[in-house]
Amino acid sequence: MTLHRLTGVFFVIFAVAMIWGVIPAQTETVYPDGSIPPEVLPMFYAAMIGLFGAALACQRAEATALDLRQGAKTAGFFLLALVGVLAMQHVGFLLAAPALALVLLWLVGERRPLWLALGGLGGPVLIWTVFEVLLGRLLP
C-alpha cells in the first residue's frame, strides 16, 4: 500500500470519526429558528473530506517514500520548541528564550562564540526590550 492510498484511508477514518463521534459531541442541539443549525456545515465538510479521501485511496499513483530520518529530526526540533514554550510559561520569556535559542544553536552545530552570543543572548534580549520596555506589551 502506498503512502498515497494510506493518506486516503486516513482521511476516510478521520471523516467517520468526525461525523459519528466528535461533531455530535461538540455541537449543541438548537431549537431551529429558520436558519442553518450549527452542526450542518461541519458535518458536510467532514463528509466531503471522507469522499475526497476515498477518491484518493482508490487512485493509482507512484509510490513515494517518507524520509523518516529527516522527519524524526524535525519532530525532535518540534519537541524542543514545545519544551521552550512550556518553560516560558513557568519561568518567563527572559530566561526561557535565551535558553531555547542556545540549545537550538548548540544542537545544530553552532560553536562560534560570536554567533552563539548574538543569536542566543542578543536576539532574545533585544526582542524583550523592544516589546516589554519600549512598547509596554507583556511577554510571558
Partner: peptide
C-alpha cells in the same frame, strides 16, 4: 482529490468557535 481534502479541512477548521446563527460553541 488532494486539493479537495485540503479545502474542506481548512473550511472545517474555520467552523471552530461560536456558530454564526445561534452563537453556540462548536468544536
Amino acid at each position: 482529490a488532494r486539493g479537495g481534502v485540503a479545502l474542506f479541512l481548512g473550511l472545517l477548521l474555520a467552523t471552530i468557535g461560536l456558530d454564526p446563527e445561534y452563537a453556540t460553541p462548536r468544536l
